[in-house]
Design a protein around this nucleic acid. Structure first.
Lengths: 72, 72
DNA sequence: TTGTGACTTTTAGTCCGTC
DNA sequence: GGACGGACTAAAAGTCACA
């Protein structure tokens, strides 16, 4: 399924941006007010994240949703 | 809740782009392979759409996810 | 510090309809 | 052509313990 790639690509994108800002997965999850294991699932491409959580992630990274989606 | 605005802004964005391409709501929903009542809910800002469906909507509109999210 | 399985609760998303 | 509702099923949200 080609679409499942979108979750993986998104996960990689989050992981990259998160690391770039020096967060551990746990600290980042906490900053997003999400559970650590949920965030882990996102980065591994296992979660089909919806708009509200996408927005939280973008906000925590200090970027727009559009920027977060770049290259996805 | 400030985040609920994101759903409304997204709904307006979809409606605008959909109309620009001359689709009726029903035809557009069908083109996205989504239910018409669901698409109505999206445009009314009542639905917290997840990544896979965001991608379908973007594809149907012929734009990238990043472009779809512009201004959201 | 992260992966992962198992799980419950909440909501996404469908399908029927009416106005 | 679109708003809106009820009833339903599938899947997302969210949590925990252990490797």
């Amino acid at each position: 399924m080609a679409e499942s790639d979108i979750l993986e690509r998104f996960g990689e994108r989050v992981r990259k941006l998160r690391k770039k800002q020096g967060y551990s997965q746990e600290d980042f999850a906490h900053a997003c007010e999400l559970d650590r294991s949920y965030m882990g699932g996102i980065e591994r491409g296992e979660r089909n994240v919806a708009l509200r959580n996408l927005q939280r992630i973008a906000e925590t990274l200090g970027i727009t949703l559009s920027q977060l989606m770049k290259g996805i």
